[in-house]
């Protein structure tokens, strides 16, 4: 047990627990904004876990994407939600039965996959971060190219559709008011 593995395990556990704690805060608080930002920090903790596992690119990517996404979600909370400050002490959990069942099923499924999937032989050590990034790039360009292209086009379609829907609504209203 080298110092590195000890440290690695420690940080993994620490960030893992932090991620779980923030996730619990998401539902325990009644303020919408706190909920959104707690989710943000939960995701950041997961990104930190990736870093602890020496998957540098994934970790940095996770931290970057989640920050922007969750901050935007927080803004939408304030704009649309009735009580973003949580003064109404609203209960954040809904459909309790269904979510409990779904949670248990999801946890079992994740554990099953983790223990029984064929992950291949355990590597002696992880390649260096620079090499990892390079290999990742090659992987995206070779084997996984189709996956990422499809994902990219799908997202683009969704963006265009959303914009078109919003504009259409506005034009309908303008025409409606003009009459």
């Amino acid at each position: 047990m080298t110092v590195q593995t000890v440290l690695q395990t420690f940080f993994l556990a620490f960030f893992g627990l932090a991620a779980i704690w923030f996730a619990v805060v998401v539902f325990r608080t009644s303020s919408m904004v706190r909920s959104a930002l707690a989710l943000l920090f939960s995701q950041t903790a997961i990104g930190a876990m990736f870093l602890a596992m020496q998957a540098e690119f994934l970790g940095v990517l996770q931290i970057m994407m989640m920050a922007t996404e969750m901050a935007i979600m927080a803004i939408f909370m304030v704009m649309y939600m009735m009580d973003p400050g949580g003064l109404g002490e609203m209960d954040m959990t809904h459909q309790k039965r269904l979510s409990q069942v779904a949670g248990v099923v999801g946890a079992v499924a994740a554990l099953v996959v983790a223990f029984f999937a064929g992950w291949g032989p355990v590597a002696g050590s992880a390649p260096g971060a620079f090499e990892q990034t390079r290999l990742l790039g090659l992987e995206i360009m070779e084997r996984s190219m189709l996956i990422f292209e499809t994902a990219g086009v799908t997202i683009l379609t969704a963006m265009i559709a959303a914009t078109a829907t919003a504009i259409a609504v506005r034009e309908v209203r303008k025409r409606g008011e003009g009459e």
């Binding site: 540098e56 690119f57 940095v60 990517l61 970057m64 920050a67 901050a71 260096g128 620079f130 990034t133």
Partner: peptide, 12 residues
Amino acid sequence: ATGALFVNAALA
């Protein structure tokens, strides 16, 4: 190793 990307992550 991912310095250029990390700048963006921090700025987020």
